[in-house]
Amino acid sequence: MAKPLKCDLCDESATVHLTQIVNNQIHKIDLCESCAEQKGITDPNGYSLADLLVKPGEESDEPIEMAAGGLVCDECGYTQREFKKTGRLGCEGCYDTFAALLSPALAGMHKGERHKGKVPARAVERKTYEDRLNSLEGDLKLAIKEEYYEDAARMRDEILELKKSIDQEESE
């Protein structure tokens, strides 16, 4: 038999299941009856997950916390509470930190969920470099751990090359 779902807030078994489908993406929140009542989720018809997550200036700030447990951005220290209050974000890293909250909200407020417009060449190039660098650094650690020293030396050289290219890009 399938395991009963637990409440997202406490360990009680969840009996209230809130589901919203936006652009074919399903977003769910599971709550026990008392938590649901406490959060005022009594009328699912008039209740939107997107509203719950980003509508600024609402009196209660509890629903947003229940969805992802009061997140704080690692990069800038922006809090979920602040986000709820202003409807704005603190830095580019917040888009990753609050991704779980933003995703259904963005789908609700925009025409789609993927960027289809202009792409800045330089930002993309930098991102490609950084992704490659991160992946190489991971591989290097693994190669050293597993004692593949020849591979490790090759990776080290490639990392040095990449870092040089990034520095050059930045100084241009």
Binding site: Y95, H110, R114, P120, R122, A123
Partner: peptide, 20 residues
Amino acid sequence: DYAFSSQIGFLTACPTNVGT
């Protein structure tokens, strides 16, 4: 250097402007 994500485009302070 602009803040940009290949998934959701130009990153803005308010999510209502994100994308283009």
